[in-house]
C-alpha cells in the first residue's frame, strides 16, 4: 500500500482536484529514492554485461582495425613512393650508362679511324720508299749495265782499231781503269 505521507499533495491542481492521495513532485520519499537507486544499479549491471562491454569492445576493435588499415595504407603509399624513386633512379642510371657507352664508342671509333689512317699513311710511305729504292737500284743496275756495255763496245772498237796490239787482259785492265775514271 502507498505510504500516506509519501502521497500527500503539495501542489493544488485545479484540473484534478478532489483526490486525497495525490503525491506531488516535490514530496521527499525515501522509498522512491531507493527504488531509483536499485533500478539504476540493476539496469547498469545488466547493461554492462549485455550491452556496454560488447559494444565498447567492438568499438575499440573497429577503431584498432581502422587505425591499422590507415597505417597500412600509409606504409603502402610510402613503399610505392620509394619504388617510384628507385625506378626513376634506375632509369636515370641506365640513361647515364647508355650515354657513357655511346660516348666511349664514339671516342673509340674516332681513335680507330685515326689509327687506321695513320697506319695507312705509314704503309703507303713504306711502299713509296720501297718503290723509290727499287727505282734507284734499277737505275744503278741500268747505269752499270750501260757502263759495261759501253766499255765492251769501246773495247771492241779499240780492238778493231789497234788490231791485236794489246792482249785482252791488259786492255781490259786499261778499259776498267778508264771506266772508273769516268
Amino acid at each position: 500500500m502507498a505510504d500516506e505521507t509519501t502521497y500527500q499533495g503539495t501542489i493544488e491542481v485545479p484540473a484534478d482536484h478532489g483526490h486525497a492521495e495525490k503525491p506531488g513532485p516535490i514530496d521527499v520519499s525515501g522509498k522512491m529514492m531507493v527504488l531509483t537507486y536499485v533500478t539504476f544499479a540493476i539496469t547498469a549491471i545488466v547493461l554492462y554485461k549485455v550491452a556496454w562491454k560488447p559494444i565498447l569492445n567492438a568499438l575499440d576493435k573497429r577503431e584498432e582495425t581502422l587505425r591499422k588499415a590507415m597505417e597500412e595504407a600509409e606504409k603502402t603509399r610510402a613503399e610505392m613512393a620509394a619504388i617510384d624513386q628507385t625506378r626513376a633512379r634506375i632509369i636515370e642510371e641506365a640513361d647515364k650508362r647508355a650515354r657513357e657507352i655511346l660516348e666511349q664508342a664514339r671516342v673509340a671509333a674516332v681513335e680507330t679511324a685515326k689509327s687506321l689512317e695513320s697506319k695507312a699513311r705509314e704503309e703507303s710511305q713504306i711502299l713509296l720508299e720501297n718503290a723509290k729504292r727499287e727505282i734507284h737500284a734499277e737505275q744503278d743496275r741500268a747505269m752499270a749495265n750501260l757502263r759495261k756495255e759501253s766499255a765492251e763496245l769501246a773495247i771492241d772498237i779499240s780492238r778493231k782499231l789497234i788490231k791485236d796490239n794489246l792482249d785482252e787482259s791488259r786492255s781490259r785492265k786499261l778499259a776498267d781503269s778508264l771506266i772508273n775514271g769516268i
Binding site: M32, L35, T39, V46, L47
Partner: peptide, 21 residues
C-alpha cells in the same frame, strides 16, 4: 507498492535492456 514514476523507472530500464541488449 509502486507509483507511476516508479513504473516509468522500470519501463526505462526494460527499454534500455531491450534496445541495447
Amino acid at each position: 507498492n509502486l507509483t507511476s514514476h516508479g513504473l516509468m523507472l522500470i519501463f526505462a530500464s526494460l527499454f534500455m535492456i531491450l534496445i541495447f541488449g
